[in-house]
Amino acid sequence: MTNNQIMFFIFSAVIVIFSILTVTSRRILRAATFLLFVLVSTAGLYFMLRFNFLAAIQLTLYAGGIVVLIIFSILLTSQVGAKLELPGLSKKIYALIAAAAGAALCIWTILQYNFPRTSIESGRTSIDDIGKALTSTGKYGYALPFEVISILLLAAMIGSIVIAKKRKD
């Protein structure tokens, strides 16, 4: 077993176990914490794949930003100690059937397909390259999606303020 394999098994085990806990835990604040573990392990996978910049974004934005946002809203809308009520049995079974069928189909397909192996050495991606690619308009340049995303974020910000603010009526 190489180091990479050991790391991968640890991360993916954490991801799968805590994902399951996230969707089954009856205490909502714990569920949020388990989600945080999942996201941090994902960041670990990114580190392992040497996407350092992406892993940093994952940690700051997802783990730091979104999870905190979720916890805030939990505190605003729920009593911390309360347990969530259990879903109905039939609902669970139906959902399990759908999810299991989908997972089985996808995994079967993945195992059937023989992905080509590449031999190109990539090396480390520098922040410099990322910045250039993000602002370049040429081939492999991402200026347009970048602009679109920034407008989307602005719109989302304005929209959430307008929706969430108290109405005068």
Binding site: Y94, A95, A98, A99, A101, G102, L105, T109
Partner: peptide
């Protein structure tokens, strides 16, 4: 909402199964 989502997911799986 969840009923709709369930129909959507099973439908997508069934379509994928059918066409693949």
């Amino acid at each position: 909402l969840q009923t709709y989502a369930w129909v959507f997911v099973t439908g997508a799986v069934a379509l994928a199964l059918t066409f693949i």
